[in-house]
């Protein structure tokens, strides 16, 4: 079983539109949305028979007003500025380090596990989908990414599926790193803007850091061909192949409004490029 993860560095370059189209083209696969902050893939795949599960992770300190003597030691040692002068813990700032819990001389502090979000396992007309929703202003997105990936792998093993197609988060931090460990291939969807190029280089750096092979897909390649050439040149120096060049076309947005993967909406040059991308991906993985 092979896992391919779609990344971008910069947000909004077309990760999810490409992923949904790959989901439409691929057979024998499970889809997983690793953008647990703002999962969007399910909007195009229309899941049914959804199972909802709780994600509990991360502890927060709670101070008992009855037991607290107001000695101030907890406030003194807390490096996250999470304890107010009235000895109330701000759950958003609390990192769950337990330092205060470990040193409170009055035993006034307990650590309480919080409900950090939910994850969902569902069926779609393209196959099984696992996605999640992190709770409002919660941390531990990296752990939730690891959890949805593990669940997708479990489904793939159980049903004997060949591929895991993973829609990754934007950025280069905690959830991206969590979505990369042990994957067979990262497809980076970029755009020929200076920001797109800057962010592409950073996320390629992350993939290389974790020794994950990369191919690149340039979306809207014709809005700035000079920048597209720059991306091609850069990728060549890094030994990275350009798998597809998708032209700018408002039909991508029209397909999105109809909530249909773009390859199903129209078999024009956009669809053909994504088909080419999938051929390169399968060629690489087999």
């Amino acid at each position: 079983m092979k896992e391919v993860t779609i990344l971008s560095g910069k947000g909004g370059t077309g990760k999810t539109s490409v992923t949904a189209s790959l989901a439409s083209l691929a057979k024998n696969k499970v889809m997983v949305d690793c953008d647990v902050d703002a999962a969007d893939l399910y909007l195009l795949l229309e899941p049914t028979s959804r199972q909802k599960q709780e994600f509990r992770s991360g502890e927060k300190a709670v101070i008992s007003a009855e037991k607290c003597t107001g000695c101030g030691l907890c406030r003194e040692v807390c490096r996250f500025e999470a304890i107010s002068s009235e000895y109330k813990v701000d759950p958003v700032s609390c990192d769950g380090c337990r330092f205060c819990y470990n040193i409170c001389p009055a035993d006034a502090i307990t650590m309480q596990q919080s409900l950090s979000g939910h994850w969902f396992s569902s069926e779609t007309r393209y196959g099984p989908l696992v996605h999640a929703r992190l709770g409002v202003a919660q941390e531990n997105s990296g752990k939730l990414v690891a959890l949805v990936r593990q669940e997708a792998k479990h489904i793939a093993e159980q049903r004997g599926l060949d591929f895991i197609i993973s829609d990754g988060p934007p950025g280069t931090g905690c959830p991206v790193i969590s979505s990369l460990s042990g994957v067979s291939l990262a497809v980076i969807v970029t755009e020929p803007t200076l920001s797109g190029i800057h962010d592409l280089k950073r996320v390629i750096g992350v993939c290389q850091h974790f020794a994950v092979p990369v191919i690149v897909c340039i979306n809207k390649y014709d809005i700035n061909s000079e920048n597209s050439h720059q991306i091609e040149d850069y990728c060549r120096t890094q030994g990275i192949g350009i798998a597809a060049r998708i032209p700018f076309d408002t039909l991508v947005t029209r397909a999105l409004v109809k909530r249909i993967p773009v390859v199903e909406y129209s078999r024009n040059r956009v669809g053909r490029e994504i088909e080419k991308l999938w051929q390169v991906v399968t060629g690489y993985l087999n």
């Binding site: 909004g12 953008d35 902050d37 992190l134 409002v136 202003a137 919660q138 941390e139 934007p170 950025g171």
Partner: peptide
Amino acid sequence: APPGTSCPVVAAVK
């Protein structure tokens, strides 16, 4: 601010 809804966003906008 960064995209998303988790801890980096909260740190940026709070």
